[in-house]
Amino acid sequence: MSSVWAKKVNSSKSGFILSTRASLSRASIVGGALGFPRIRLPTKYLGMPLYKGPKKSFLWDDLTSRIAARMEGGEAKVLSPGGRITILKSILTSMPLYLLHVIVPPKSVMCRIERLFNKFLWSAKGQRRIHWECWEDLCYPVEEGVLGMRRLQDLVNAARMEGGGGS
Rank of each mutant, 00 (worst) to 15 (best):
V142T: 05
L41I: 08
P49M: 04
K56T: 11
R115Y: 08
P141A: 01
Y140I: 00
A6L: 14
P81G: 02
V142Q: 07
M149S: 03
H131I: 03
K77I: 12
T20N: 14
G47L: 06
P81T: 02
P37H: 13
K52T: 12
L100V: 10
S14E: 02
S57Q: 15
K107S: 14
A22C: 10
K44M: 14
I103W: 08
P141S: 06
S11V: 14
L79I: 00
I113P: 01
E136W: 08
C111I: 13
G163L: 14
Y98K: 05
S90A: 12
I91E: 07
E162M: 10
S94E: 12
S2T: 09
I17Q: 00
G164W: 09
E162Y: 09
G145P: 03
R128A: 14
G163I: 08
N10D: 14
S90Y: 08
V146H: 12
E72W: 08
T20I: 03
G126L: 04
K13T: 00
L63C: 09
H131Q: 15
G83F: 02
R40A: 15
P96C: 07
D62E: 13
G47F: 09
I17N: 00
R26F: 09
P49V: 00
C134Q: 07
Y140M: 04
E162V: 13
S80G: 01
Y45Q: 07
W135C: 02
T20P: 13
D61C: 09
R160L: 15
K55N: 13
I39M: 06
V109D: 02
C139P: 02
P141Y: 05
I17R: 01
S25Y: 05
R151H: 03
K7M: 15
P106I: 01
E133C: 11
M1I: 11
L97V: 15
G31P: 04
R70P: 00
R38V: 05
P54M: 13
G164N: 12
L34K: 12
A6W: 11
A158V: 11
L18F: 05
A33I: 15
L92H: 02
K119N: 14
E144D: 10
E114L: 00
G165E: 14
K89F: 03
G165D: 14
I91V: 15
I29E: 05
E162G: 07
M161A: 14
T93Q: 15
K89L: 01
I29D: 03
R150Q: 10
P105F: 12
S80A: 05
V4A: 10
L63E: 08
G83E: 02
R150E: 11
A159Q: 06
K56A: 10
K56V: 06
T86E: 12
Y45D: 08
G148L: 01
L92A: 03
P81F: 09
D154S: 12
W60I: 07
M1Y: 05
T86W: 06
M1A: 11
G74A: 12
S123W: 02
D62R: 14
R38P: 09
W135A: 01
C139H: 05
V109F: 03
L79G: 02
A69H: 04
S3R: 12
S12Y: 11
K55M: 11
L79T: 00
G15D: 04
P105Q: 07
L63K: 09
L99Y: 11
L34H: 04
K7N: 13
G35L: 13
R21Q: 13
G145F: 03
K89N: 10
S28H: 11
